[in-house]
């Protein structure tokens, strides 16, 4: 009964497709189109966000934090810097106290983040891949996280 098989397959596709779309979220690191850097390693991303000076292809990365999205922030702590929120914030304070290292610039919204990286030489920020697709003047230089 090919007709019934088609109906079952179509039903299954309708049920599963939206689930798959939800599951495939990605967090990426982006920079401005004008930055010549094409790829940044995971270790360099981590170092940059831990306050260490990182240069890629002779260009200094200038990390920016996007703090307006709670889930994105959780992914940042767990998958980018591999620290609890408290440990990370204490480390930033400690570097400021010991060496005068300024804490990273923070922005609240995706649009502000995109504007910030476009306006700074090799500024980098993490954001959802879905958001990158609708913004202009920025490019992805690292896939940071993928999951549900």
């Amino acid at each position: 009964m090919p007709g019934l098989r088609h109906i079952l397959l179509l039903t299954a596709a309708f049920v599963l497709l939206p689930c798959n779309a939800r599951a495939e979220r990605q967090v990426v690191l982006v920079t401005g189109d004008s930055c010549p850097v094409r790829e940044v390693s995971s270790l360099d991303v981590r170092k940059a966000y831990l306050g260490v000076t990182v240069s890629v292809d002779g260009r200094r990365l200038r990390p920016i934090r996007l703090i307006g999205d709670e889930m994105l922030s959780s992914i940042f702590y767990q998958s980018v810097v591999h620290m609890s929120r408290k440990s990370y914030e204490r480390r930033a304070l400690s570097l400021a106290l010991k060496y005068g290292t300024p804490r990273l610039e923070m922005v609240d919204s995706v649009d502000d983040a995109a504007q910030a990286v476009r306006g700074r030489e090799c500024g980098v920020v993490y954001m959802w891949k879905d958001d990158v697709d609708r913004l202009s003047g920025i490019k992805t230089v690292r896939l940071l996280w993928q999951g549900e």
Binding site: V52, T53, L93, S94, Y99
Partner: peptide, 28 residues
């Protein structure tokens, strides 16, 4: 260079571990 800094001025001694970690940052 990226991992080296030369400082000049009044500093806290490096020969005391606690002092060089916490300075006057009581909260930390």
């Amino acid at each position: 260079r990226d991992n080296a800094m030369l400082w000049f001025g009044r500093t806290h001694t490096t020969s005391k571990h606690w002092t060089s970690e916490y300075h006057h940052g009581q909260y930390l």
